[in-house]
Design a binder for these strands. Structure first.
Lengths: 202, 202
DNA sequence: AATTTTACTGAATATATATACAGTATAAAT
DNA sequence: ATTTATACTGTATATATATTCAGTAAAATT
């Protein structure tokens, strides 16, 4: 999608805020009032620019006929929370789902698939504490230094990822825990995904 | 909340559907078209009934000025993110607001007023890292062990709170930092609020 | 039995609103 | 170098829209 100018961003923010506040979109005059414009045509032309760039649609002739595009409006959804149990993989199967919590798409910088409820303190020095919810993006494409969800047979752990050649090192962020060395081809070894965010509910 | 008649339910559903479809509320004429009424006053009086029963609010004089009540539509809101700068208190003044992020009411167990962007590692051992967003509830009622936002003159810090008698101890969660001892009556000392949650965006 | 609420039609109207037109000026793209 | 996009002010206007008033009629409430 085409980039917006600073003023266009302001107008778009203004529309979002107005809808949140009132429940319906602003008129040209409302936008002028909010942003200090003195002519309704200032708002009009910004709206047409936003329309042209695909951020909104405008129903011609309708009052307040502004509609935020799907990309523009943050949709609220629910996302599952999965318990990190010693035996049992974090799948999206019903029996593993602790609960669903609401979230906004743009909460984190990257999108993600589920929350993992952390047990234990093996990633303490990375600021990941017991009962934290780690946002996990399901992917096997991980890079050195990523915090990953690794499965070894039925055991699931959250660790730093470090690979060199054929060997993978899973490094805890806590001196009380040991590093795990494993070969890429090991039967039952699998990278479930990586951490892209965290929520602490206390 | 007072019960709705079948027709009133139809009108309410019509409004919800129209908003979902178009992004903005219907006019009286729109409702008539959708439900087959021949007079705009049919819609008008239904709207006033819905308003009277608390399902919607109507902004008088505004076109499409229909707003679904909180009970009627669960709205998502935005909450400000405030930078924790060495000099300058975390107020909700515009100049301190980094950005707004969307959130759902039930994201954390407690409600809160703003997010504080963490600078430095003074609370590292509590799992609070640089650039984390700490959810702050504005209150001066804090208990020993709470993580609080304390202001001393223009300096704002995030620390564990510990009080005994008239003396307050502000304890970092990092051995590299020193504890702060202060009297309750100290001029310029103030508890801004306490941490009730955390978000890490990486 | 009397009153209020619901559920409309139909007509009228003040005003809220989108939108076009005429300008000015600067920045960006071709 | 010329065109296009950005970023407005200011005026004007057709029409989209809320809203009031006058009725009719059945159902629910008091």
């Amino acid at each position: 999608m085409k980039e917006l100018t600073i003023q266009q961003k302001k107008v778009l923010q203004c529309i979002k805020f107005y809808i949140k506040k009132t429940g319906f979109p602003p008129t040209r005059a409302d936008i002028c009032r909010e942003l200090g414009f003195k002519s309704p045509n200032a708002a009009e032309s910004h709206l047409r620019a936003l329309e042209k760039k695909g951020y909104i649609t405008i129903e011609n002739g309708a009052s307040r006929g502004i509609n935020l595009t799907e990309n523009t409006a943050e949709k609220s959804q629910t996302i599952p929370v999965i318990g990190l149990v010693a035996a049992g993989s974090p799948t999206l199967a019903d029996e593993n789902i602790e609960k669903h919590i609401p979230y906004q798409e743009s909460l984190f910088l990257s999108d993600f698939d589920y929350f993992l409820r952390v047990k234990g303190l093996s990633m303490k020095d990375a600021g990941i504490m017991e009962d934290d919810l780690v946002a996990i993006k399901k992917t096997s494409e991980v890079r050195n230094g990523d915090i990953v969800v690794a499965r070894i047979d039925d055991e699931v752990t959250l660790k730093y990822f470090q690979s060199s050649g054929n060997q993978i090192k899973l490094i805890p962020a806590n001196d009380d825990f040991d590093e795990i060395y494993i070969s890429k081809e090991t039967e039952g070894f699998f990278i479930e995904g990586k951490s892209v965010g965290l929520i602490r509910e206390n």
